[in-house]
Structure formats: C-alpha cells, structure tokens
C-alpha cells in the first residue's frame, strides 16, 4: 500500500514540474502563433527595422526597440558606479555596523513596489528636470533612466557584494600582511577576483531594466519616435504593449505587440543564457 502512495506522490511531483515547464514553452508558443500573420513572407525583420507609421501600413517597432535599449543602457551606466561604490562599502571598506545597516536598506529597497518609484518620479523628478533644463515637459529619457537606475541598483548591489564576499579569505590576509591599504586591497585583489560576479550582476540589472514597464510608461513620455537627444520623450517595448492593448483584436497594429513581446522574451532569454554560461565557466575554473 505504501508503495502505491510513493509512486502516486512521485508522479504528482513530476506532473507539477512538467506543468511549470510547459508554461514557459506555452508563453513563447502564444507569442509565436499570434504574431505569425506579421511574420509571413519574411516580414519579420522588416518589422524590427521599420518606423511606426500606421497610416502608411507600416507597423515597425524600430523606434520602440531603440527607446528600450537607450533607456536600459543609460540606466545601467548610471547605476553601475553607484552600485559598485555601495557594494564595496558594504563588503570591504565600511565599518561593520554601517555596512550591516546599508545592506538592510538595500534589501528593503528590493521590496518597494515599482509603481511607487514611478509615482514619485512623476511628481518629484519630472518637475525638477523640467525646471533644470527649461525644455519640454520633463518626461524624457533622462528622467526615466534616472529612476530606473534607482530601481535596478539594489539588485546589482546585492549581487556585487555577494561576489565580493566570495573572494577567498587567504587572499585578503595576504594583502594585509604585505601592508596593503584597504583601498589597494579592494582595487587590486577583490575587484579582479570578483569580475565574473560583477558581470553577472550587470546583466541581471540590464534584464531588469529592459523588462520594467511602469517607470518607462509613467515617466518616459511615450512619444513614438526615434529619440534624438536625452531630453526627448521615447516609448519602450513594454509600454507599447500596455498602450496598444486597448485597441481592437484583429488589426495589424494589435499584432505588432506580440512582436514586441517576442523581442522582449528573446532579449531576456539571451540575458539569462549569458548569466548561466558565465556561471558554468566559473564553476569549471574552480574545479
């Protein structure tokens, strides 16, 4: 009797595992099938490079791709030095109590809802940018990527400081006994040793920035155009999906959001694969 229960339980566990895996595949399948009419006859690559002009029958998502990439990269560029500094404060330079406090705050920051960042962004940051540059409405790439940088830096900080903590103790003791200062220790030993971890954190931060909807939707201004300067407004793939969904279900305009969804899926999958291959290389080197 017990045997039967064992088998049933194992089959149940296996079943739920298969269900969860199939969700991943199913999502991709849905995007593919619903986006298919656009892709027939090799239109797909046109779609990625054409401008958006619904009245001329062209539904390219090129402006959105450019917007997404600009905002994401800018925010990573802004968040990177900040996160690196904070991570080194947490795990190397800061005093014990301060670094514990800082780590708590950073962990807490990961729990703050994105919509709150967006809300504060609209009513605090956007007017500031508007006053500062005296141009446009203040809803621009610059403010969106500033806010995104705040959003992604906790993820990056936690990853960085984890990888700093994994540097072998004996290396650190060696530097101390050679008479190296804290800063030297950080620059010449910890940073090179934790390079992989830093890269992983960067990629994860980039993935988070690419996938985020609310901040870009609320702050970036959502104009469909290839942005010319930092103070132009832009629309990202994610906010395009959110904005178009209200239209009717059969038009090509509606289909284009599945192309957006698929590009996002592919971007993030590539990021995940990148992180994983870095991880396995790291393990291989250790052995």
């Amino acid at each position: 009797m017990i045997k039967v229960y064992e088998t049933i339980a194992e089959k149940l566990f296996l079943l739920s595992a298969i269900v969860s895996v199939s969700i991943t595949i199913l999502i991709f399948g849905f995007m593919l099938i619903l986006g298919l009419p656009l892709m027939k006859g090799g239109h797909f690559f046109d779609l990625l490079t054409q401008p958006w002009a619904p009245y001329h029958g062209s539904y390219g998502i090129y402006p959105m791709i450019v917007g997404t990439l600009t905002i994401a990269f800018l925010s990573v560029v802004m968040a990177f030095p900040l996160s690196l500094g904070c991570a080194c404060l947490i795990s190397a330079l800061g005093s014990k109590r301060f670094s514990r406090f800082l780590r708590r705050v950073v962990q807490l920051m990961t729990g703050i809802p994105t919509v709150i960042y967006g809300f504060v962004g609209i009513f605090l940051l956007v007017p500031m940018i508007r006053e500062l540059f005296q141009r446009g409405s203040g809803m621009c790439i610059l403010s969106a990527s500033l806010m995104l940088a705040v959003l992604i830096s906790p993820t990056m900080i936690l990853f960085f400081s984890d990888s700093f903590d994994h540097v072998p103790k004996s290396y650190l003791n060696a530097v101390d006994s050679l008479g190296g200062s804290q800063v030297q220790k950080f620059l010449y030993v910890i940073l090179p040793c934790a390079g992989k971890g830093v890269l992983t954190g960067l990629i994860l931060g980039l993935g988070r920035a690419l996938g985020d909807t609310l901040i870009a939707l609320m702050i970036a201004g959502n104009a469909i155009q290839v942005p010319g300067s930092l103070l132009d407004s832009a629309r990202t793939l994610t906010s395009h999906i959110a904005l178009v969904i209200a239209a009717d279900y059969e038009s090509l305009e509606f289909r284009s959001i599945f192309a957006c969804g698929m590009s996002l899926y592919v971007f993030t999958t590539l990021a995940v694969l990148g992180v994983r291959s870095l991880g396995s290389m790291h393990q291989g080197r250790k052995r």
């Binding site: 895996v21 969700i23 999502i27 993935g207 969804g261 996002l264 993030t268 995940v272 994983r276």
Partner: peptide, 22 residues
C-alpha cells in the same frame, strides 16, 4: 528544468500579462 525556470523568472511581467490576455 533549471534552465526553463531561469528563463521563466527572467520574462518581463508585461509579457506574462500579454500571455494572460491572449
């Protein structure tokens, strides 16, 4: 399986919303 779950964890929430909608 781990690979699949990593990908699922990385999918932006709006894409999952789009999936739910479709």
């Amino acid at each position: 399986f781990n690979l699949f779950f990593d990908i699922l964890a990385g999918i932006p929430s709006i894409v999952i919303g789009l999936f739910g909608f479709s």
